[in-house]
Write a protein that binds this DNA or RNA. Sequence first.
DNA 1: AAAACCAGCAACCGCGCACCC
DNA 2: TGGGTGCGCGGTTGCTGGTTT
Length: 314
Amino acid sequence: MGQHTCCNQQKVKRGLWSPEEDEKLIRYITTHGYGSWSEVPEKAGLQRCGKSCRLRWINYLRPDIRRGRFTLDEEKLIITLHEAVGNRWAHIASHLPGRTDNEIKNYWNSWIKKKLRKPSPIATSKNPSTHSEQTSQFAYSLSNNPNILNQDLNANATHQFHNIQFTTPPDSLFMFETNFTKESTENQSNLDQTNQFFQETTQCYSGIWSVNQQHCSQPIPFSNNGENSNYLPPLESMENVVPLELLHSCNISNFEEHVTLDWSQQNSASFPLWDQLQQTDDQVLGGEEFVLHQDLSMGMLIPNSSSNEHHLEL
DNA sequence: AAAACCAGCAACCGCGCACCC
DNA sequence: TGGGTGCGCGGTTGCTGGTTT
């Protein structure tokens, strides 16, 4: 493989980057971009391998890097995401704008791991129905929705951040196991601590969207329309409105790039995910019967209406 | 004051995947 | 189809600065 040889070249320098090297790399990238990392060192006048340049840029020199201590919210999010997806640092980083996978990985290894290892003084007795009950409820939802197992890890992971609360019908509400990934079952104290973190601070519970009987994959045209795929479509493009009474039977899928809601054999809608979205709150997508809006600061996609409490937190 | 120890983090390594020819 | 190449990712290493003995 190419990269395996690129760093073996004799001239290649290794170790810490000097300010001069940083400056060269910044100057080159900002003026030329980085079409091919393997060409960057030579063109930038650096005696580094392309891989090293890439790493330096991505993890340290990038202008949108957010440095400094992790906030409590970031920490909670990391814990939550790690609970769901394990050591997929790049995936976790994608939910924390300005943070790199390397930074998060280091932070995890040095801080959070220790934190979670400590026994929790508050523990989980606060909510007696937590673990075993949720496990069985998750098992129940799983038994009713074998497709869950066919979704990729990412989808499963994202499922775990959904708090779906339906006022009606009650049987569409599924609580879920937050800790079904292999990595997360290391020990009970991890689990307790994580649950405690999650529940006390974010008031969020992970969840599985209620099961759909039929899956339909015809997206409404506004989905993912090109360059600004991370941005929500304009309101007027939302031609179809999900009837409230059908919402509970929606199927949600494809979380990698966008959320797809299917609510009948003919209709579905796709909503781009909110990674890197920071400028809009409450962008309305829906119409008369219910409203979808996206609370970006909270990372939630929320079907809502004035007359009910339906919502989905992502 | 100096040696030993430790924690944090930047950087490297190796693997896997996608793409191209 | 298979080999070569480039890139991204997760795991690991090792340097550095702070703390303890």
